[in-house]
């Protein structure tokens, strides 16, 4: 799939909770095809210690408006500075990068599991799945209720389940503690997950126990984003592979030591 370097115009910078914001960026021409699971390498101008681009998940795509949404966590200098960008500012992106989530066939029931800002790629994924006649359930986990990432957005794609560590909203505990995982409740053909590694590993094991495939979207420190520098490797059953070009989506069974 062809990659582009484009200047986007920021049309919205929406604070969604403490530590997270959504940027909506617009292209002045029709958007090229962008698939769920792909990411953009974003240049953060004006942050002196941010030398490299930042890889950010595609959160949503609106072809009618030629906009892409990015859900960003303020993590270091770069993302904190990105949070100060205002409508009208320019954002340079190299995109769309990486592979994509595999979409099954109509009639499937699938479970999307996101932890923290790891839900970022699951909004657009859920939208495309639903469009393909697949029944979507999104399970979103957060530390507490006010750290959820715009949960109402995911309800458009299907059922939404919530867990919070302090029990302030939904089921108390981690995503893996939700009753949906109990054998008598589990009725999914496929699991998709994105979030902290420990969470994704636990989810992948639960999926394996229920004998369904699990696709995971990895986050690694990156430089080029196009498979040239070989910095973002992950250990797989076939050796080191690049998260940026062979991923970011992998089947959990391909990853070494993920499923025992």
């Amino acid at each position: 799939m062809k990659k582009y370097i484009h200047d986007f115009e920021i049309i919205e910078n929406r604070e969604i909770n403490e530590g997270h914001f959504v940027l909506v960026v617009k292209l002045s021409e029709p958007l090229p095809p962008v698939f769920p699971g792909q990411f953009a390498e974003v240049k953060i101008e004006g942050s002196p210690n941010t030398f490299l681009r930042r890889p950010l998940s595609i959160h949503d795509v609106d072809y009618a408006a030629n906009t892409i949404s990015l859900l960003v966590q303020r993590k270091g200098d770069g993302t904190t500075h990105l949070g100060t960008f205002k409508p009208g500012d320019t954002l340079n992106m190299v995109y769309p990068l990486g592979n994509q989530f595999h979409i099954g066939s109509a009639g499937e029931k699938v479970l999307l599991v996101g932890g923290g800002c790891g839900v970022a790629p699951l909004l657009y994924l859920g939208k495309i799945l639903a469009k393909n006649g697949i029944k979507v359930t999104t399970l979103m986990g957060a530390r507490k209720g006010d750290q959820l990432m715009e949960p109402e957005q995911y309800q458009r794609n299907g059922e939404l389940l919530i867990t919070t560590e302090d029990g302030s909203e939904g089921t108390k505990g981690f995503v893996i503690h939700h009753e949906i995982w109990r054998e008598r409740n589990f009725a999914f053909d496929r699991v998709y997950t994105c979030g902290p590694d420990a969470m994704m590993k636990a989810v992948a094991r639960l999926a394996a126990r229920n004998n369904v495939p699990c696709q995971v979207s990895l986050e690694q420190t990156m430089a080029c984003g196009v498979g040239a520098c070989l910095c973002c490797v992950v250990d797989t059953t076939t050796g080191h592979r690049c998260t940026c070009t062979d991923g970011p989506v992998f089947d959990a069974s391909e990853l070494k030591n993920w499923i025992d």
Binding site: L52, M222, A223
Partner: peptide, 15 residues
Amino acid sequence: QGNPYPRMAETPMGM
């Protein structure tokens, strides 16, 4: 196979 991850660290004006 090269070295294990992590293999890259960003630095001021470099990596």
